[in-house]
Amino acid sequence: MLKWLDIIKFATNGNPIPDRRLEKTEEEWKTLLTDEQFRITRLKGTERAFSSDLCSYFEPGRYACICCGTELFDADTKFESGTGWPSFTQPIKENAVAYHKEGSFGMVRIEALCNTCDAHLGHVFQDGPMPSGLRYCMNAVSLKKMDVRERKIDFGGGCFWCTEAIFQRLKGVLKVENGFSGGKIANPTYREVCSGGTGHAEVVEVTYNPDEISFEDLLRVHLSTHNPTTLNQHGADQGSQYRSIIFYRNENEKQAATKIIDEVQKSYPDKVVTQLEMFEHFYKADDYHQDYYNNNPDEGYCRAIIDPKLEKFMEQCKDKLKQE
């Protein structure tokens, strides 16, 4: 998760390398954009406050650059700032937005630009909501709304090899990645996390289609395929890195998770100790840890630990499995 210090570093020392670059002449941009779009994005203009319905639009989806189509923000990070311009707490990727110090109107501000085509988007301020504290104050004219049904959820329940193998087999799950969340340092290694000193949990990040499987059903699967009543422990694995945890992205997800935990509690004689924590950042583990069970089905851990768990899960959740 980017913080104000990161923004200052980018603006001072150089921006992250974009996935691609697109450059056009002024005349070429004029043929592609309306007069207002050209004024805002290519001439660094500012639209009138409260002039767009995007300020009060919070439906799921993503926001892309009106000039080049690069995805910039996810609706999950959008909030009502009361300023009259669409506001976000984070870009969709660290390298999606570029930053530039500028001194217009007699004050130094951090300009936000599309890192692909240099379109002027707006400015970044340090008065946004926690945990990032950032407010990306964007011109609505510089953005286009894209309806995207994909959602993400991150949670931990012991070794991520086991959790990954289960969720890969669920209908509606598009991708599962292993990694770490909830710790104190950036880009931790597997060895550092296993030491228990970084505060991270081993987690999976599940990308899913809510039209095929709901957020609530994913949580039910999660809480029924590991023991959520053991604190900082899963089987023989012990330590806070193996804690049972759900990372929510907004208040609605937090309320839904609380409800599902109360529902699942009835199935356990001991207290469910699954933690709820606001999602901040997912650090993907090395390639060796990705798709682990599928790549190593005959390895001892897979046969002794994952095979029995998978067999039980697939018998209990036949109606939720992908068709082979």
Rank of each mutant, 00 (worst) to 15 (best):
E216P: 00
V206T: 06
N15W: 01
H123R: 03
Y136W: 07
P269S: 07
H281D: 10
I245R: 14
Y268K: 04
E192H: 09
P269R: 04
T89K: 10
T116D: 03
A304C: 06
I261D: 04
T77I: 01
I92F: 00
A256D: 12
I305M: 06
L32I: 13
R149A: 06
K78L: 07
T274F: 05
C114M: 05
N15V: 00
E251Y: 06
T198L: 11
K3E: 10
L310N: 11
C159T: 12
D6N: 15
E102Q: 10
F125D: 05
R191V: 15
V204N: 13
I246W: 08
L219P: 04
I8D: 07
N139Y: 09
A112W: 01
A64W: 02
T70Y: 02
T46D: 06
T189Y: 03
P16Y: 02
S56T: 12
Q241V: 13
D217Y: 05
R191G: 00
G69V: 08
Y283M: 04
F180L: 07
R20V: 07
P188W: 10
V176L: 06
M146H: 05
D74L: 03
S56C: 09
P297C: 10
E80N: 15
E253R: 09
A186Y: 08
E59T: 12
Q255V: 05
I213F: 00
T198A: 12
V97H: 03
A186E: 15
I153C: 04
V108H: 01
A257W: 02
E251S: 11
K171S: 14
Q90L: 12
N95T: 00
L170P: 13
C67A: 15
I8G: 01
A236Q: 09
K78T: 12
P228A: 11
T83Q: 06
T230C: 04
P308F: 14
Y190D: 08
Y292S: 08
H289F: 01
V148I: 12
D118P: 00
D154T: 15
D291M: 07
K175A: 14
L43I: 08
H200Q: 13
R48A: 11
N178C: 15
L2M: 13
